[in-house]
Design a protein around this nucleic acid. Structure first.
Ligand code: FES
Ligand code: FES
Lengths: 141, 141
DNA sequence: TACATACCTGACTAAAATGGTCAAGTTTTG
DNA sequence: CAAAACTTGACCATTTTAGTCAGGTATGTA
């Protein structure tokens, strides 16, 4: 089970953004430099964050991105959903009665994987961007 | 975040095994047929389970595999560890002070990923093979 | 109005991981 | 001795990941 860089970067970038956007729009270039993430890759990520109304963009010189919601209302779930980082513990279709690989019924461990998926998603639902900001301030020396 | 088939198959196969091994050693061929998992792939998986002393092998005709421990003492953690299915929320080395991609320090969201990793691993540590057997009996019609 | 800054879009790709297969054994029981 | 079943290691097609690259378009400022 691995968390992909895309998901990790999305959260990193938003935390960075949240710390500065009250002053000015934050350019991807700045985030790229501060967080060491490729600018081109950030652009892909922010395009999705924007489509999902997590950020707003401001074009032109001195432009950049701004949060579109209160940091308290941006949960990890929302961020991950926006960048297509989803938790998948099985291959079979959730809504179908069929099992993995097109088998007629669900397998003997199916319930377990459902539980696991819920367990992980709960973590994401309970963590907001704001939690990360506070946590970060606390641990800053 | 995806759970790989290897990890899923390992657990499925062991649950299947646990239901029959009190009578006879269970051959991989039987597990393969019952669970719809490629025999060749199962062989790779059981080779690892054996190295980690989760199962014992009995060679020859009427041979097969048997659990090497009490189902209560086989946690999901042990199974996953055996087949190299590990939870990885970061790229950077746990024990190093350096961050991802060789950066000099850990990133601003590092704590979060640690928490996530612990959250997931807790689930695996608290689930034993025995839990799965009971659960399965309960839900069987 | 030019120009620099910064967003925007889509195509492309190298490398790694995944999910196996294939081949050639060895061991043991009936 | 034949068949069943474990053992080992190499091999491989496909998919996913983690980007890069090449072109735009919009807008504030000198
Ligand atoms: S996980 Fe898909 S059938 Fe059980
Ligand atoms: S996750 Fe590796 S440095 Fe933060």
């Amino acid at each position: 089970m691995k968390l992909t860089s895309k998901g990790r970067y999305a959260v990193m970038a938003l935390v960075d953004l949240a710390r500065f956007d009250s002053i000015n729009p934050v350019s991807l270039r700045d985030i790229s430099l501060r967080q060491g993430i490729s600018l081109d890759y950030l652009e892909q990520i922010f395009s999705k964050l924007k489509k999902n109304e997590i950020v707003k963009s401001i074009r032109g010189t001195q432009g950049g991105y701004v949060l579109n919601k209160n940091p308290n209302d941006i949960k990890l779930t929302n961020i991950f959903h926006a960048v297509d980082e989803k938790v998948k513990t099985v291959q079979c279709n959730k809504d179908s009665k069929r099992g993995c690989n097109g088998k007629a019924t669900k397998c003997i461990t199916h319930n377990l994987w459902d539980e696991l998926e819920i367990h992980i998603n709960t973590f994401f639902e309970n963590k907001s961007l704001n939690d990360l900001l506070n946590k970060n301030k606390e641990t800053r020396v």
